[in-house]
Design a protein around this nucleic acid. Sequence first.
DNA 1: CCAAACCCGAACAGTAACTGCGTTT
DNA 2: ACTGTTCGGGTTTGG
Length: 834
Amino acid sequence: MKPSSLSGLPAGVGDALEAEGVAELYPPQAAAVEAGILEGESLVAAVPTASGKTLIAELAMLSAVERGGKALYIVPLRALASEKKAEFERWEDHGVTVGVSTGNYDSDGEWLATRDIIVATSEKVDSLVRNGAPWIDDLTCVVSDEVHLVDDSHRGPTLEVTLAKLRRVNPGLQTVALSATVGNADVIADWLDAELVESDWRPIDLRVGVHYGNAINFDDGSQREVRVDRGGDQTAALVADALDTEADGQGGSSLVFVNSRRNAESAARRLGEVTASRLTDDERDELRELASELRDVSDTETSTDLASAVEEGAAFHHAGLASEHRSLIEDAFRDRLVKCVCATPTLAAGVNTPARRVIVRDWRRYDGDYGGMKPLDVLEVHQMCGRAGRPGLDPYGEAVLLASSADTMDELFDRYIWAEAEPVRSKLAVEPALRTHVLATVASGFASTREGLLEFLDNTLYATQTDDAGRLESVTDRVLEYLEINGFIEREWSGNRETLTATGIGHTVSRLYLDPMSAATMIDGLREACADGGDDRSADYAFSGTGVEGDGDGIETSEGEGDDGPFGTYSLSDVDAGAETGAGAGGANGESAGEEKTEGAARELTPLGLYHLVSRTPDTYELYLKSGDRETYEELLYEREEELLGDAPSAYDDVNFEDWLASLKTARLLEDWASEVDEDRITERYGVGPGDVRGKVETAEWLLRAAETLARDVEGVDGDAVLAVREARKRVEYGVREELLDLAGVRGIGRKRARRLYEAGIESRVDLREAEKAVVLGALRGRERTAERILEHAGREDPSMEGVRADRSASAAATAGSASDEDGSGQANLGDFG
DNA sequence: CCAAACCCGAACAGTAACTGCGTTT
DNA sequence: ACTGTTCGGGTTTGG
């Protein structure tokens, strides 16, 4: 079937596809066309990765647009949203417009209603439905990418409910679901009233095998000798073998999947020995350049470790990396500059990074709930293997699992290679999932009675899969009760019908996309802070029945001395001291503006208290306590318990107390960030990567913004509290102390530059507009372009830096002894102005 | 002859990943 | 389960 022979597509699309090299549709694509996707038929396509799924979706969407409709493409990851958008934008030449919407990025100002194709994450779509985006009604085609993720216990229910809602709003909606090959694609097709196209066909051959001894044993019975030196390592031998085997004129790169971040890093370091010896001089130069870019991304150990691995031609990839790190690595790997990437599952399902050879080194991963090392799901291993083989570049792809014994080899064949992926099973019928979706369903008017709600839920995959309808009902009842008690919904009997309505707050919570439990936690905390009677706060904070309460009065004693131990030379009081002297030098009263703002409240609402509050909601992913942390944070808890909101659990209530401390740990990470503690210090102190810090900050930002809205809407929370929340939010957002908030709000000024400007006597936007340019330039390390941009953003009439000579004296004081920090990368340390 | 450097094995600790908001001050 | 790190004891090495 030739693309140009297809009817129903916008003019020129068929020819354009052929010009791209699509001479003939792949069999699954042809099957999809036969199933009627060009005429608006719904379809489930369960086919391997990289077998042309996206084109199936494109054909459906483009024909829908040609008929005057509008299409939505739902992706599981934000990174995929931008990737898909870029891909679809090639149709703009044919008059098809594309937009994206994710949590952190909306299409450039252009209102989505005017776009023909919209790409969004499932959560974003859910949120758009809740907020009543007008164009939702106009949709005629929806594509759900990686639909097998409905199986995911956290995010699956959202996808499931969202698809059900979209189909409910628009009964004629064409639904195209793209899935990996799973055990029960037919069930998904049933649920979506769709045709099913199922196939194992792949455009490039994929050979899967197990390496054991000195050879890979492939699934087709063939073998390939790959010798491992005595005491040598299988992975290294396989990576070397791939590199030494020229196919298309080059050796092949490898993607190695391992089960922990640490393993990824150490494997990359080791494999660097293999790749380094096979680099050309040009590659070495380019890699050095890439390494220096990587180092500039963030001033952390992770960053330098990554850079040094990359210099050898190997890299690691995991969620602890900053997103800039990740995309640099992904791009360089695609360009074949980086020869080998050692990754955690981030890369298995994420953006498209194929390799000639995939090595699944670890097939078990630690799982606390499971109580040890749990074998990976078949589906997950298949997804990893599916990354092997780059269409158009590699003649074939190879996926290799590693075995150290003949028994293991047999097990791997049985467990993964011959095995079919697990069936997809809905995870909807659990309280956390239903809590949020029941509220949203009621709030956005999809149901107004208990029966209506159950009827709506009957359209979900769960309902078509379960034979225990009572379970969904009983969980729903529990959830309704919870929502009523917390004031998010009202239940009223009129005659024999019970009506459900969302309260004002209920609506707000639904629109803010909060888990109702998070909202309840935040509301309680804020109310408590504002409640009359700050005096009996000790009552709230007594560690009820633990025997600890007696210490309540003497806790202050630990202040000042407690900081030294766990963190070596550094302590929070050091930061305070540093920043205060800093503020003093700047000639400002660096103290207590925060206190003034909150003095009307019944009790002081401090950033730490608020960070702790949002950190213990179910919407924040927990930071785990490591050994020794328990003592550290117990001590911190005693020192600062007056700042914390809500009732601390008893120290004998092990689980809850640990959670409380873990949230405190997260809270202090945020406080450190908002106090200008260096990124590398934070990563070191909390044992996380730069990517984790960014993630925590982002979450806190979002939740505090939501808290601010709640604080305004809810009874019993006063205006001072709103201000305190806002300030705490802005401080994490910019990562600065209070006195820098004004400066850091200017585009182009981050936490480091703000501090330097401040130390140079430029303390506000107004100062920026009026200060001597020489001083500004000096504070910005003589970077003229940067200085001009900043002045422009600050609204200065004449931002030009032409002919201005930097006044170094201004910044000299602030940067004493760090002459080497002239690279403009903005890596000032707190220590620099101590 | 003694102390510092070095080496080895045992004991121990730690363990993947993802998305969510709203325009006002 | 597995790996990387730490720690302690014993050995080697250098002055």
